[in-house]
């Protein structure tokens, strides 16, 4: 009772009460996000300077974890793989999303059905579609080998495309494009539908062709949406784990590399933490450049 009085004295005006209540409502969400996202991130940075033992004793080793990571050629391989993966999946999903959105913005029979079918790869669980993809590229029974080797005779013998790291990264990229282009498509389509139709009519009166209309009207209208999509895609794919790891263990992007380092074999949690810190710094610097140069914020 006393506390209630102190919290809500009769003199407390509506504005102040509103302020307190606003904080009360957001507090649970805030506490959870602070304690389970923000705190762990700082804790991760802390751990990266320690030799982390599973029995609970951490010993401070300065920059040794970072040295261990930076002088490991596997780490640099996985940096290269990650960049390859991020660049091509981002270009692929955005480009494919754009083309499909442009097509779906036209009217044709059964459009409603096609529009909802397109979203299926995006909503289906990763774990349930990876096996179908693995089967497609299966060296013995897969349809890819059947077409390229048996029917078209492109290769001298059957081989396991997902089995070799060099080739598997391209399968992983293709898979990611297939899985994620619907998201880009959806964003672009909803922006397309918001463009004022009068603009096109005016351009037609001026004698503009399809390409000119796209260049002068559609593309400028889409520029910022696409900029945002590319940004989100870079962030998400840079951190991507499941879509790569579940499809093939041979493509070691940074997340997968960290996973193996930290949770298999000798469980180098400290080194894993160091990689995660490096990965995050790379992402941040990349984003800062991107936001400045492309989005011009």
């Amino acid at each position: 009772m006393e506390t209630a009085k102190r919290l809500y004295p009769a003199t407390l005006d509506r504005k102040a009460r509103e302020e307190i209540f606003g904080w009360v409502l957001i507090l649970p969400a805030l506490v959870i996000i602070l304690s389970l996202i923000l705190y762990p991130i700082f804790y991760n940075i802390y751990l990266s300077f320690f030799n982390v033992n599973l029995d609970g004793v951490n010993t401070y080793i300065g920059l040794d974890n970072y040295k261990g990571v930076v002088f490991d050629s596997f780490f640099w391989n996985s940096v290269v793989t990650t960049f390859l993966y991020v660049v091509f999946t981002t270009i692929g999903t955005t480009f494919m999303g754009l083309i499909v959105a442009l097509a779906m913005n036209k009217t044709f029979p059964l459009r409603w059905l096609v529009r909802s079918l397109i979203l299926l790869p995006y909503v289906a669980p990763v774990i349930s579609v990876v096996f179908a993809w693995q089967f497609i590229f299966d060296p013995v029974n897969g349809i890819f080998m059947d077409i390229t080797f048996n029917k078209l005779h492109l290769f001298a013998n059957r081989f396991n495309l997902i089995g070799s790291p060099k080739a598997a990264v391209w399968v992983a990229i293709l898979f990611s494009i297939w899985k994620n282009f619907p998201f880009s498509y959806l964003m672009i389509l909803s922006r397309l539908q918001a463009i004022d139709k009068n603009l096109f009519e005016a351009a037609e009166i001026d004698g503009a062709g399809t390409w000119q209309k796209f260049k002068a009207i559609t593309f400028p209208e889409l520029y910022f949406v696409m900029g945002a999509i590319v940004l989100l895609r870079i962030i998400w794919n840079f951190n991507k784990f499941e879509e790569v790891f579940l499809l093939t263990k041979n493509v070691k992007v940074l997340s997968v590399y960290t996973y193996f380092k930290a949770f298999t074999g000798t469980m180098e949690l400290g080194q894993g933490a160091a990689i995660a810190v490096i990965q995050f710094s790379l992402l941040i610097s990349f984003i800062l450049i991107y936001v400045k140069k492309v989005l011009k914020w």
Binding site: K15, L25, N239, F241, A262, A276, Q279, F280
Partner: peptide
Amino acid sequence: MQYRGRSTIQRSVLFVYMFGGIILLIPLYR
């Protein structure tokens, strides 16, 4: 609702998008 710190909270919620699972996995496990 109107209160101080509101837009900061709103923006930091978006900031969380940046963190992938793997950077949280090791500390949370620990």
